[in-house]
Write a protein that binds this DNA or RNA. Structure first.
Lengths: 351, 351
DNA sequence: TTGAAAGCGATACCAT
DNA sequence: ATGGTATCGCTTTCAA
């Protein structure tokens, strides 16, 4: 069943059949009705996507490229909220969404990259080469949570959120009996270094702030400490590669092993913080009395945990919605930074 | 940059360039290396997907059609786990995934349906007409959580899980002082009727068991009650249209309003049960002492709630993995029913 | 091993 | 308002 065969059967031109589907104003209502009716009867359900796309150069699909594998992102509550926001905006515009992994890409994968009309990049793709490829297509691109020169970007105010969180924590536990305590606060960081292993950042080279949101968060932490006259030694800042439960557990165990034991843990994601919470509990530590714990993101589970988690709220859903709107109408938008907000809950509620 | 222009620049045939990408054995290693190198230099990143797909009739994409909108499914923990499973299997095979909404579809949407090489249908599509359209394409289809004649299907044992859950609940609260109590248990059901409004099923026409997994669960509940000599009156079985928080709250409020108040709530999803939990709490009811609550699915939040939620575990992740494997190799698979298992936790832990 | 050419299914220009 | 036809970029058969 092709458009052509339909045209022959009805003894009209292919153009008319095509127009019946795509440009109702180009033919009489009568003819259009007849064509559409016959198509339904013969089981022709409309133009083939590949052919139409080849001819028009458009696909009606927005590509959402994730930083790494799809499976990983389906485990990340922030990514899920983000995708939900994108889906919501796109649904409204009757546009479709192709999820693309940002890992190493074979030739077959690369062919995929030619499908979408525009791209939302959720974080810098693991495979750095895709960036150049996408740019060479000259299609709209929106970078989320990072920046690409000469393209729209959408970020959140990591610095401010981190600053507020750290300010709160340091002012609670940064001094002991009025004297500065440089061992009071440890950080469970995420992707601060270019390594898989969990370790402190002491003596290592950090990612720069322009490529790593974690680095920005760390800078926020540090600034708050400094402004309060406190210190945040590198030897108390831990790096993890993934935000997965196991990494959080391992890093939290190491962090809480330090002598003297830190009185607070600043975590760079709620997932890490939740894992830390469970480590603290299993070590018989009271939260927040023995150790305060603060997260980042404000995923749904943060409110539901016990104790509930103090954290930095970021508007993941709204970020997704906006990213979709931006990429659909790039000319009507500017680079944007969405606000974040520190939320005090039980896990840091020291008097 | 097209394959043809590359061929001209290098003074070779288009066939050779194509072969360089697709069939290394069809040309000398030297020539291939030269072609690939020049492509990289000139910024040709491989064949255009639409053209290749038009020509070969394959796309390297698996379509995952959800029952309704994408946004709705990104809110459903089961759907997310399922998609994660699919993504995991597909990642391994270097195949890609196109998420497709199963709601009402415009012509543009219908064009999308011609892209994938095969389809996973996660629940019966809201728009019933897509089923016929997909079938007429003669591509592999796997139906998940429902059945299509002459196509592979993958289900879970809803009946057994529901039976176990209800058996547990009725044997705890089904009799009072040794006499049968037909008001002991209410059901918060999901999509039992073809209506949006929340109501009991008394006097209404239920979906049949072959199109509604909820109906199967209800049948399991009923059978367990019957086997224990108890009753499950239609007037205590509530229907909701969505598994969203608000629906759960509303249905639970109505259910708990019945006089005498039910001693247990059998909910058809954990989302509904969690909402019921919160209703019970806000009414000052103790769970499980005043009212026991049981869910279905065993989403992650079920263990984390307080009290933790008794529920029927279903292997959503594994279901996704298997669905992907089935659709990629339909001949090697048969219709499958995955087991479910009732898990007792605190919300029904009556002695 | 390489090249020429047909054709995948649709669109849109240009005639009529 | 309708029809004829070149063309989108690529794959693949067949011949050289």
């Amino acid at each position: 069943m092709t458009l052509k065969s339909i045209a022959q059967r009805l003894d009209v031109s292919t153009a008319s059949v095509s127009n019946a589907f795509n440009r109702p104003d180009q033919l009489s209502a009568d003819l259009r009705a007849r064509i559409l009716k016959e198509c339904a009867r013969l089981g022709y359900h409309g133009p083939n996507h590949a052919a139409r796309s080849l001819r028009t150069g458009k696909s009606g699909i927005v590509g959402v490229m994730l930083a790494d594998s799809l499976a990983y992102n389906f485990k990340d509550p922030c990514a899920i909220e983000f995708m939900r926001g994108v889906a919501e905006s796109l649904d409204n515009q009757r546009v479709n969404l192709l999820l693309m992994p940002g890992g190493e890409s074979s030739f077959d994968q690369q062919a995929l990259e030619t499908i979408p009309d525009c791209f939302i990049l959720y974080g810098p793709p693991n495979d750095r080469s895709v960036l150049g490829r996408l740019q060479s297509q000259h299609k709209p691109i929106v970078a989320v949570d990072f920046t690409i020169p000469n393209h729209l970007s959408l970020n959140i105010d990591n610095y401010q959120g981190a600053y507020e969180a750290a300010h709160h924590v340091f002012s609670k536990v940064g001094t002991v009996d009025g004297t500065l305590d440089s061992t009071a606060v440890a950080v469970v960081g995420l992707r601060l270094l270019d390594q898989q292993a969990i370790s402190t950042i002491a003596g290592r080279t950090l990612f720069e702030a322009d490529v790593s949101i974690s680095r920005v968060r760390l800078d926020g932490f540090r600034a708050a400490a400094r402004d309060l006259g406190c210190a945040l030694p590198d030897s108390l800042v831990w790096h993890t590669h993934d935000s997965a439960w196991n990494d959080g557990v391992e890093a939290a165990e190491l962090a809480l092993q330090t002598q003297p034991r830190p009185r607070a843990l600043l975590c760079m994601s709620d997932q890490l913080a939740l894992a830390a919470l469970s480590v603290a509990r299993s070590q018989g530590l009271r939260v927040p009395e023995d150790v305060a714990i603060v997260g980042f993101d404000d995923i749904p589970a943060a409110q539901q945990s016990h104790p509930s988690l103090s954290t930095v709220y970021q508007p993941s859903l709204e970020k997704g919605r906006l990213a979709a709107r931006m990429v659909m109408a790039p000319d009507k938008h500017h680079n944007t930074v969405l606000p974040t907000k520190f939320i005090v809950r039980e896990s840091s509620a020291l008097k």
